[in-house]
Design a protein around this nucleic acid. Sequence first.
DNA 1: CCTGTGATCAGCT
DNA 2: GCTGATCACAGGC
Length: 197
Amino acid sequence: MPRLLHPDDFLGSAADIARALIGATLLVDGVGGVIVETEAYDRDDPASHSHAGPTPRNAAMFGAPGRAYVYRSYGIHWCLNFVCRESGHGAGVLIRAIEPTHGLDRMRERRGLENPRLLCAGPGRVGQALGIVHAFNGCRLDQPPFEVWAAAPDVPVSVGPRIGISKAVDVPWRFGLMGSRYLSRPMGLPSKPAKAF
DNA sequence: CCTGTGATCAGCT
DNA sequence: GCTGATCACAGGC
């Protein structure tokens, strides 16, 4: 039996928590599934929204751990992070992909799409499929509409560089459920095939 | 398989 | 004014 995560479960480095969240189950108003891809961001990280310090947008990252940080991406999508904290403020885990298990019909409706593989394969898609809105920014993850259930022990996790950033591009803070077909992109492939000259 | 581009806007310089 | 923790779709091979 899994256990409901508590704010104390988000005390630790963003990378540790991002890894531990692989295999956890996230539900928003009963809709969601198994988290299969995450990325870590923290204050010392040039790629992080929190790197330059607190602003109105990133305020949730500097607030209590175990809460949501929701931001607008490219003017279009809502993306969901879990706020965590080790020593300082400004750390979070981006939820990048989910294997849909709960409320498939609701997700298909919201996404206008049948293929379960594409319902939640990417942070913007997760936001749309789970009905993430800006009003959830700062909300506790252990209270409605959120529910986060701990992963089973010994989940196999793969690691690689993060996606879609231009700074700290080699930091290996992207985590994935090994072998999952619900990732936003495959893990661990070389960025370019080696030339066999 | 791959690359290119439009959508659309908040935050920052 | 430009950049972005993105996505969908078009076109070429």
